[in-house]
Each structure stands twice: as C-alpha cells, then as structure tokens.
Design a protein around this nucleic acid. Structure first.
Lengths: 141, 141
DNA sequence: AACAATACTTGTAAAATGCAAGTGATTTTG
DNA sequence: CAAAATCACTTGCATTTTACAAGTATTGTT
C-alpha cells in the first residue's frame, strides 16, 4: 500500500515539485497527455518507453492524488478509462517546453522534436498558448 | 561501481532529460549552484533537504559525466573543491524557473520563493537573463 | 602534535523499481 | 452465445536504488 499524503522535504518550490514529479516516469505520462493525445492506461503502456504496469498504475494514482490528472469513464467503452490533465497539470506545459528545448540543444533527439523546437524558437509564446488552449478545450468534453 | 554511460530510453527529449536529471536530488544541486551561490560538497550537504553523503557524491559524479557541472580546485583551500555549472547546466535555468512558477502557484512555499515569482511575473525575461549572465561571469573566475 | 573540517567511501537496511504472471470486468469473434 | 481477446489493473518476487550510520584520507587550525 501507498502512503496517502506526500511528505514535502522543504518549502522550496523546486524541492516540492520534485517530491511530486521527481522520478523517471511521471513527466512522461504528462507528456503523453499534453503532446501526444494519449489518454488511456493502454495508451501510456505503449508510450515508447516500456513502463511496467505496476509502476504505471502507481504513478497514475499519485498524479491523481496530486491533482495533476483526473480519471473519467470512457465515452466509448466501459472497459476503458479516460485520463485528463487538470488545470494544474496543464500548467506544467511551460516547464515541459523548457525541458524539451534544453534537451534538444544538447542531445540527439527525434526529428519531430527538432522540428518542434524550431517552432518554439520562432514564437514560443504562441506555440505554448495554442497547446494550452487545446488542452483546456478538452476539459469540457 | 556506477555505469559510465547513461542509457537513454528513447529519443524523446523529455525522456532523455529525465534519464539525466529525473530524480529527487539532481535538480536541487543545480538549484543550489544556480540560485543560492553554493558550490562545495559541504554547501550542498547543508542545503536544507538533508541529502545523504553517498547520494550526493554519486549525483555530483553523474552531473559531471553529463556535462552539467565541472569540478575545480578551490582557490582558498586545498581541502575543498569548487563545483560550477557548465553552459549546459546554466541552460537549465529557464526550466527551473518554470518549475518554480508552477510549484509556487499550487503549493505552500517559502516567502522568498513567492517574492521571486512576483518578480518573474513582472519581467521574466530580464530576471532570467540576469541570473544567467551572473552565472556565466562566474565561469571566468 | 592534536583536533577539526572537508570530501568522500563502505556496509547494511529499507524502499522503489522491473519483470512475469494472474485477475476480473468488458468487448469482440466465430 | 460461448470462447477468446482486450483492458485496466494487482500480486509476488528479484534486482536496483536510496537512506542511514559509521569510517577514512587529506588538509587546515591551534
């Protein structure tokens, strides 16, 4: 069984953020939701990085507890669930975008990522805004 | 013994970033270097979040291997070492700043952090630029 | 020379992660 | 409509990582 409440190590905002999303998987789930239109357990499992099923279930629960995602019935199938980013989750997009830019600058990444960073360099504000607006619209479905 | 080369799970820039700094401690060391003027092993140990000595040594090595920090002799004492951010490390500041903003918005944080975010809201570009310039200047000492 | 500070290393217990298999509820197929 | 497949997990166990306590080697201080 998991602890219900996370203990924060300090009142430093970075430290607190890491207490929530400071692991190798949480941000990838958020990435899938924010950039890849993935939103079911099965989607995340086939996300490209081979997360273990127990870890995925654990992270989904933690992210839900942290108020970053919510779990809904799937409109097309009772066997599925639909995960969505909350406003708190959507607000992570600017941080993700900066991480992408940094990583693209210093590492070999997928051509798709290079293209995305090129767009960012051209007009970061607009690109970020468009992504966020798109995600907010989803919230009403 | 530690592995010498990190294996990247995929060519996704976020995934690659997490392979390097996706843990509970690395970004706190970088925070200490970037925002708190800390730059020795002892400084990091007393950084407020009680990192274990073996983990600190391990993370310093990994960050150095990743090209994010460098290790230098201390100008005032042969018993000490001086750690500095590389340009790659300095380039993480914008991501850190976004994480700070996000975390401050949704969590209880230190008043100092609230003040910092207020400045950011007023003029993010200038604040970030000033921090980065300050760090770059240090590189020449 | 003795003591303290600094930057670690080592040993071991505890926790988190990874892997394989299993479960129960739906949904599809023959 | 019964059997197989899909989906979202859970369970058990081995491996890896982390935490905590203690020890060590070099340098600095008195």
């Amino acid at each position: 069984m998991r602890k219900k409440n996370i203990e924060y190590r300090s009142s430093c905002p970075i430290s607190t953020a890491l207490d929530i999303i400071g692991d190798k998987w949480s941000l990838l789930i958020i990435r899938d939701l924010a950039f890849k239109g993935k939103n079911t357990y099965g989607d995340f499992l086939n996300g490209g990085e081979k997360i273990a099923t127990n870890i995925l279930a654990d992270r989904l629960m933690l992210l839900e507890m942290a108020g970053i995602i919510t779990k809904h019935p799937h409109p097309e199938s009772k066997a599925k669930h639909l995960y969505k980013l909350t406003p708190k989750g959507i607000d992570l997009v600017p941080a993700l975008v900066e991480i992408i830019s940094w990583s693209e600058k210093y590492h070999e990444v997928h051509p798709y990522a290079k293209q995305f960073v090129k767009q960012l360099k051209n007009n970061k504000e607009a690109v970020v805004k468009q992504i966020i607006e798109g995600l907010k619209k989803d919230s009403f479905n």
